[in-house]
Nucleic acid binder design. Structure first.
Lengths: 102, 102
DNA sequence: TTGATAGGCAAGTGAATACTTGCCTATTCT
DNA sequence: AGAATAGGCAAGTATTCACTTGCCTATCAA
């Protein structure tokens, strides 16, 4: 399950979790909007590139989807991948545990 | 939220997730039992110390609880911390997002 | 067309982390 | 008591990862 790997790795970083918080509050933000929110609301001093790379990781995990409009690129939250993660260990699997060997 | 940080970091590693799978299947295993299961079932070549360190991370996250009996140390799964993680972004929080700044 | 805005690519750095090896302690069996 | 079993501690290594800096492309406004 390479999908699970991307998902959990994406959630491992606190800055990325804060980004998800911001997108939960308002979906469809641009890179610069997210940057200024992290700086203003959360006192996070991080470069634009840093945020951009975080967004790429979140997109690879399927947690963020993007759409381009002119020079703007909007980032939307997708919570669908989150639903599987809790259920993996809460519900006993009859089909056996996932193959997640690295 | 330092608790969330430990939790997500613990889940970030695929070997640790496999350990959780094994403890889901049978809770209360010793270090050596877990080692042999990882080696046999999952073809994971990892030293005993490696597994021990993984278990320490899982215990710090509250996902594993231990009890000593003689020379044996049994490892039990605790899924309680898992319940919060999905709900963080699935349910819109009226109290605002968590303070998870690093 | 010039300048400002929004974003992307790539290389480099420093810190975190997964993993090993070697040695040490405690408990149990013969 | 001595050997085997179960586990712990600590240092060293090597890879991963977050982050920055510098430069480049594309869209829009004056």
């Amino acid at each position: 399950m390479a999908v699970a790997d991307d998902l959990f790795k994406a959630l491992a970083d606190p800055t990325r979790r804060t980004i998800l918080d911001e997108l939960t509050e308002r979906s469809g933000q641009t890179l610069f909007e997210i940057c200024s929110r992290l700086s203003m609301k959360h006192r996070l001093s991080i470069s634009r590139q840093g945020v951009s790379q975080h967004l790429a990781v979140l997109e690879a995990a399927g947690l963020v989807e993007t759409r381009r409009e002119g020079r703007y690129k909007f980032h939307d939250l997708n919570t669908a991948p989150l639903r599987q993660i809790a259920e993996r260990w809460l519900v006993p699997h009859t089909s056996g545990p996932e193959d997640d060997t690295p």
